[in-house]
């Protein structure tokens, strides 16, 4: 479904992503893991068009999306969330969702129920807690028509209850055959839900494989824990 081929990106003298290649297969949950500064979020930004790669190709299905503007990439079928939530703070929950898709109240209520966000539709996004804003952002990205959902650290900075809810949501996405590319630091969670895990280190793909193979890999352990 999504393939990156030799994608590189430098910021000044720092190589954030270095000839990175991997593939996300349809109906799978693929997790990108790696230590801080490994280039995970930069790759997300490159895929969604917010950062332009210096070189390499990115294909969604059979279409090269590397040079497209973010809104065209979104229309091509990529929906995403952010490490730090980006809700429309001065707009209501309903208006936040209507920006993603022109939906009726029933559809909006259903999507909110699916992410366990039980608040009146006219509540301003700024009145929600950080965890609830994260759920709203997730609902928004789910409502937007997409073929690939990219979630950047969905469980980061939220309380245990919302963290549990997010896990349930992701399990339900997996059960429904959705294609998800995930950045997550909760290793127990990643290993429990992912079909494929890609380990990044210093902008390069260090290892790619099934969760059970990744946890035993010596290079991966070194990248996380040091030699």
């Amino acid at each position: 479904m999504l393939s990156l081929n030799n994608v590189s990106k430098s910021f000044g003298g720092v190589k954030a992503v270095d000839k990175c290649s991997f593939e996300v297969k349809e109906n799978t949950i693929t997790s990108l893991i790696g230590p801080n500064g490994a280039g995970k979020t930069t790759i997300f930004n490159i895929i969604s068009g917010l950062t332009k790669a210096d070189s390499g190709t990115i294909r969604l299905s059979d279409r090269n999306i590397a040079d497209l503007a973010p809104y065209k990439i979104a229309k091509a079928g990529i929906s995403r969330t952010f490490q730090l939530t980006k809700v429309f703070r001065n707009m209501s929950i309903k208006d936040n969702l209507l920006i993603a898709k022109n939906a009726n109240d029933n559809d909006i209520k259903k999507i909110l129920e699916s992410v366990y966000l039980h608040k009146p539709l006219e509540t301003l996004a700024s009145e929600l807690s950080y965890g609830q804003q994260r759920l709203l952002e997730l609902a928004r990205s789910l409502l937007m028509p997409h073929s690939l959902l990219m979630l950047d650290e969905p469980t980061a900075g939220v309380n245990p209850e919302i963290r549990r809810e997010l896990k349930l949501i992701l399990r339900s996405l997996k059960k429904n055959g959705k294609t998800v590319l995930l950045i997550e630091h909760d290793m127990e969670f990643v290993m429990g839900i992912s079909d494929v895990v890609i380990v990044l280190n210093e902008g390069k793909v260090l290892k790619e494989g099934k969760p059970k193979d990744i946890v035993k890999d010596k290079k991966v352990l070194e990248a996380y824990l040091g030699k």
């Binding site: 917010l50 809104y71 995403r80 980006k86 703070r89 993603a100």
Partner: peptide
């Protein structure tokens, strides 16, 4: 409110 979010929502 957030131009980046609007753009990744296809606007």
């Amino acid at each position: 409110d957030n131009e980046v979010a609007a753009s990744v929502l296809g606007k």
